[in-house]
Computed example of a mutant assay.
Amino acid sequence: MNLNLVTYSIYILITVFIIIKVGLVCYRNGNVFVTHLVPNDKDFCLRVNNILLLGYYLINIGYTVITLSDWTTVNSISQLIESLSENTAIIICILAILHYFNLFWITKFIKNFK
């Protein structure tokens, strides 16, 4: 029995949920950092934050869909769980790396403006 479609569906649901949840948290809390960089223009900061959220969604959801082409055939429940956990862990690690990379650059810019 080919379980690829089941695995793909579960993977997309899990990762899109994680991506949207993390994106909304970063969007709500990230406006503080953007307004600190440009304190006099709230409208501009809101637009920059919206663009950052859109770029975040496009990169991560695009990567999630592209990873589906590299999967091997899933023939058992144990392979299904292995594929799901491995690929979900990869996307979570990528999100963490992107988060720390962004924090590094934001703090670097804030130090330059002081």
Rank of each mutant, 00 (worst) to 15 (best):
L95G: 02
C45Y: 01
N4K: 15
N31D: 08
L98K: 04
T72Q: 10
F104M: 11
Y8V: 02
F101D: 08
D43E: 15
S85V: 08
T88Y: 03
W71A: 09
I59V: 07
V74Y: 05
F113P: 03
I77F: 13
F109V: 06
T15E: 00
N87S: 05
L95H: 00
V38L: 15
I94L: 12
S78D: 13
I10E: 05
I110L: 08
L98W: 07
H36K: 14
V38F: 14
N102R: 07
Y63T: 01
D43G: 12
K108Q: 10
S83R: 02
I12W: 00
S69L: 13
L84F: 05
N49E: 13
R28M: 11
Y8L: 05
I77K: 10
I51Y: 10
V34E: 04
E86D: 07
C45A: 13
F17Y: 08
Y11L: 01
V48G: 04
N50L: 11
I20D: 03
L68E: 00
L53K: 04
V22H: 00
T88S: 03
L46M: 13
M1E: 15
V16A: 01
W105Q: 11
L37V: 15
A96V: 04
V16E: 00
F33D: 13
W105H: 12
L84W: 00
L24C: 09
Y11I: 01
Y56D: 01
F113R: 06
I81F: 14
L103V: 10
R47W: 13
F101Q: 12
I10N: 03
I66R: 01
L24Y: 14
F33Y: 14
Y27N: 04
F113W: 03
W105R: 08
L52Y: 03
N29F: 14
F33I: 12
I59Y: 14
V6E: 02
N29C: 07
S76M: 06
N2G: 10
S69H: 07
F44I: 14
H99E: 08
V74S: 08
